[in-house]
Write a protein that binds this DNA or RNA. Structure first.
Lengths: 244, 244
DNA sequence: CGGAGGCTTGACGGCTGTCAAGGCTAGTGG
DNA sequence: CCACTAGCCTTGACAGCCGTCAAGCCTCCG
């Protein structure tokens, strides 16, 4: 292993305009002219090996990142060492929007498997979005979507019980995987029980117990990180019905 | 009472450039030229009486709003009627950013007292921000700040106990009031125990009990919605120390 | 093959939710 | 001006969900 080059940067091989994620990522809805411009902007890619951070809280903010392959978590920490996973990001999703506010990142982004991200220099993105209305609009939509997503997580954390939280989490995960062409039924979790628990405001034991309960009830098949959804409607019902 | 005009709209009397909130609101950091442009943009004001909504989930999104006077809450609801307060907004803070993502609002904004908001037509704001770099940057910072704030709420909801949540909430509130020139020691809550509870992921009884506990411990003086902070450091300690 | 990290499961306790009763306050109408 | 009422708040008793602690198992990888 070559430890002298911890961060591997390479010229981009796949342009946005021909990227198979373009319908999920920043380029959504852009015309071919805008896309050509975006290709110019997104010139580098960065590899992050499993366990490494893409950025840390406190790092100077310069770029946002689009996940090209792999899987990330973002987490915030309070001064006293409390830790909260704020999201899991998969291919086509953006990382680093938190950094715009103070020019420094306010959370850590950690790769949960070997990953590649497209580096989008923020100042140039702003410049380009002053020129291209559609790009501007798309970027604003993505930021707004993140806000809406966060509100959904607040709803989950503020008003759901453990089973409901885990069911909502699994449905969200499978839905996003499905949008990327994966099966909605079988999946491999990239994160530990503890990370799921942190995201859902639960302890890892509760996550584990709830998985077991779902299995007993025939909703899931659980084998460590390998899951099979047996009864999607049953999970959905858990999320929708408060109690009955 | 004239019920034929439920929404009162009037020409803006105070321009952004001379608004006493300009250091807290969208105009932060703009030069006088940008400010003049912003004055053109923000041409109307809207009154919302206590209990009325500024917008509702599902409403078509056209404008964002800056609170000029008064106090709002925003809340999301799930299909099954679950309800979650996602924030409280006071003078100088923006409302409606959630609507950008789908061109429809995804939460309700309710006035908790008679309020006025400045109406900022979003399409025109985007247009203007294509022209003025500082305005663009400022708007992006505000959206990003909302994301960072949401992450803080997730941390609170995901990892804090009732006392810690309420202490954090009170400190946040007093800090924002102080930034607006109010005393950091005495305040009047604009929201009910139930709304506080919803925001903090607690039941109203727990909020009430925790208030009483803080009072017994000499941290607060509580008389219904009238609060006096007696020991700010003590509250801060509650937030910082997990247990001891 | 051995160890470390991750996962499962049990026992138990405490925090917070639930249900209920009663008090307070502000706003309304007589 | 004052009584009334509705909404809000407080407090108690009790229960249950989930956290804590502990022990042991599994799996992956060196």
């Amino acid at each position: 292993m070559n430890v002298t080059v911890p961060i591997k940067i390479e010229p981009l091989k796949v342009a946005c305009s021909s990227c198979n994620l373009r319908e999920l990522c920043l380029p959504v809805g852009l015309n071919s002219n805008d896309l050509d411009q975006l290709d110019e902007l997104v010139a580098t890619r960065r590899h992050v090996v499993r366990g490494d951070t893409l950025f840390r809280s406190g790092d100077v903010f310069q770029s946002i990142y689009a996940v090209r392959t792999g899987f990330f978590k973002t987490c915030v920490s309070s001064e006293d060492g409390r830790d909260q996973v704020t999201g899991f990001q998969m291919a086509g999703e953006l990382l680093g929007l938190d950094g715009i506010s103070t020019d420094r990142h306010s959370c850590d982004a950690v790769a949960l498997e070997d990953s590649q991200v497209c580096v989008i220099p923020f100042e140039q993105l702003e410049e380009l979005s002053r020129e291209f209305t559609d790009l501007q609009r798309q970027f604003h939509k993505i930021m707004s979507r993140e806000i809406v997503r966060d509100h959904g997580v607040m709803l989950l954390l503020g008003s759901m019980r453990a089973e409901e939280r885990l069911a909502a989490f699994l449905l969200n995960l499978t839905q996003r995987l499905q949008a990327r062409g994966f099966s909605a039924a079988a999946l491999v979790l990239r994160m530990t029980r503890e990370e799921i628990g942190s995201y859902l405001g639960l302890k890892l034991e509760t996550v584990s117990r709830t998985f077991s309960k779902f299995q007993e009830e025939g909703l899931l098949e659980v084998k460590q990180r390998h899951l099979r959804i047996l009864d999607q409607a049953g999970l959905q019902k858990l999320v929708n019905n408060t109690n009955c």
